[in-house]
């Protein structure tokens, strides 16, 4: 006889236990995600018939990704942009940019390794990360991303190992360098597609800008990192130019994004209000600041570092801002309703 705990009826409690895969879950109690409703208590539950919602409850589920994902966007972006710079540097046959190239490759290797780690960390079931590569599914940007990410490190490593060699190996290294640059291009921009390919109104609405913004921001990020950490006279101008173009493009893309999303005013709301609005606006200011610093005459190290810091902060805050805006957008049923009522649902496709 197995000893069992019994209740007052002397009933084997195991009898009533839920079993099976569904049963094991521990559920977040309703009240934690209901706090907002609790605050609305007191208001009479009379619906607004002209602009109805279901008690103001969200239609969509919030993104479940936590802090690691915006960080991944940033790190991955910076790594990818570095690799792009690295493979562009191959064009220079003078050897002056060898250092830059090496640094780019290493930034790519470290960055993509870190990205992978962060990504796995964010997974609900990290032990199953490799399931990402079970299939090849072009409709899933995340699946594409997994393939991209997994192609980055090998090519970057090969490039790092052989690019400076001569002969066959060197050629192999150079081809790998170009490949790593291509995957870097993909790595730093696909994340824009990743979130644009979603039901979240603010992301979906700004889908035409997001990859550009993310790409530009990746350039700015990479530029800023090089600005801050390396003092390579030969490469300075290259990274500086790359970064500055990135900053300018990031700023332009930010403005474009706001306008894109703002085609349905309600959809852009998270960019103006709340935590997401704050992050977004500050990011823009930072990026603008770093751009200003980098285009003003004079190239002191101090100023470059300052521009780098601001640029980095701008890029990071931008990613968090976008992430938070997505969360806020999912929470707001009217964002979905108005977007679709404005003809920006499926109607837009005709």
């Amino acid at each position: 006889m197995i000893a069992v705990t019994t209740d007052g009826r002397d009933i084997d409690l195991e009898v009533a236990k839920l079993s099976g895969e569904g049963a094991l879950q521990k559920v977040r109690p309703v009240d934690t995600h209901m706090q907002r409703v609790a605050r609305e208590w007191g208001k009479l539950p009379t619906p607004d018939t002209s602009d109805p919602t279901y008690y103001g409850r969200p239609v969509l589920k919030e993104p479940v990704w936590h802090w690691a994902i915006p960080l991944y966007f940033y790190v991955g972006g910076a790594a990818g942009a570095s690799l792009v710079m690295g493979s562009a540097a191959q064009l220079d046959r003078s050897g002056e940019l060898e250092n830059l190239m090496r640094r780019c490759h290493w930034a790519g290797i470290i960055g993509s390794a870190l990205s992978g780690a962060i990504l796995i960390y964010d997974l609900g079931k990290p032990s199953r990360f490799h399931h990402m590569l079970r299939v090849f599914r072009p409709t899933s940007p995340m699946n594409m991303g997994a393939w991209i990410l997994s192609s980055v490190s090998p090519s970057a490593i090969v490039a790092a190992m052989f690019a400076q060699r001569r002969g066959i190996l060197g050629a192999f290294g150079e081809i790998s360098g170009v490949a790593s640059g291509l995957s870097g291009l993909a790595l730093s921009t696909y994340t824009g597609v990743l979130i644009a390919n979603s039901a979240i109104p603010v992301w979906q609405e700004s889908r035409r800008v997001l990859p550009i913004l993310f790409g530009a921001s990746a350039m700015a990020s990479a530029g800023s990192i090089f600005d801050m950490f390396f003092e390579d006279r030969a490469a300075r101008r290259v990274t500086y130019t790359f970064g500055t173009v990135g900053r300018a493009a990031e700023l332009a893309a930010s403005i474009a994004l706001e306008r894109q999303a703002g085609r349905v005013p309600h959809v852009a709301r998270p960019l103006h209000t709340g935590a997401s609005g704050f992050l977004w606006k500050t990011a823009t200011v930072m990026t603008a600041g770093s751009l200003l610093l980098s285009v003003l005459p004079g190239r002191s190290r101090k100023r470059r570092v300052a521009a780098g810091v601001m640029g980095t902060l701008g890029s990071i805050m931008m990613r968090y801002g976008i992430h938070q805006a997505g969360v806020a957008s999912a929470r707001d049923p009217r964002a979905t309703f108005r977007q679709q009522r404005a003809g920006h649902g499926a109607a837009e496709l005709d």
Partner: peptide, 10 residues
């Protein structure tokens, strides 16, 4: 019809 035996002392 009885589907299961009652548990314990039930």
């Amino acid at each position: 019809h009885k589907a299961v035996e009652p548990p314990g002392d039930c």
